[in-house]
Simulated assay, not measured.
Amino acid sequence: MKKLIILIFTTTLFLPSVVAAADPPASPSAVKLDKAGIEAFATQFFEQKEVKEQLAGALLVIVKDGQVLLNKGYGYADIAAKRPVDADTTLFRLASVSKLFTAAGIMQLAEAGKVDLDKDVQTYLPDMKIPNTTGAPLTLKHLMTHTTGFDNADNVDSDKSYSLRNYLNDMMPTVVRKPGEVFRYDNFAFTLQG
């Protein structure tokens, strides 16, 4: 399943550059995507021997400017029953792959000048208090790279239902190590970015 998720995400990331390579755009930001080109690329990709050997099933959705350009299943949702992936009914668990989408959103905000990756995140969260005993600022860059220095990044009270704001306030860890110095896989950092 992990290989499947990585494959889907990698395909999604590289699709614009592959489509653009066939027909150079007028400017770097003007990649032309059309339904026929995307479907041809996806079909060719999923028909490759190496992909078929490693992939049970996948679902590829490409959306541009609010329009669905491709929504198609490949391979099997259930190998034993030979049940194919159905784009409208087959579900795949994304789990930590969603962190990549959160990071992409933060990078879009940074490109637009709405956030600074090196600025103290407390600036962007005036209604929340991030306890920090280090004296060093905690930045978006630290949140994105799992280097926050939080004492405990994965508090979950599974018996309680939370809004995002309440969860963040109730479960906020303390920064106890200088941000940027120690790597620790950090789900809370991505929740905080969201």
Rank of each mutant, 00 (worst) to 15 (best):
K2C: 06
L4N: 13
L4G: 15
L4V: 08
I5N: 05
I5S: 08
I8A: 15
S27Q: 05
P28A: 00
V31I: 08
K35T: 15
K35Y: 05
G37I: 07
E39N: 14
A40H: 09
Q48H: 05
V51C: 08
L55G: 01
A58I: 08
V61R: 07
D65W: 08
L69M: 09
N71F: 10
Y74A: 08
I79G: 02
A80R: 11
A80Q: 15
A81W: 03
P84L: 04
P84Q: 09
T89W: 00
F92M: 07
L100T: 08
A103L: 11
A103C: 07
G113I: 00
G113N: 04
D116L: 03
L117G: 05
L117M: 12
I130E: 13
P137Q: 14
L138K: 10
K141W: 01
H142Q: 09
L143G: 02
L143E: 14
L143F: 09
M144C: 08
G149E: 01
D154A: 15
V156Y: 11
K160N: 13
Y162N: 06
S163H: 02
R165G: 06
N166Q: 12
N166C: 06
L168D: 10
N169T: 15
P179C: 12
G180R: 04
Y185M: 02
N187M: 14
F190H: 08
L192G: 08
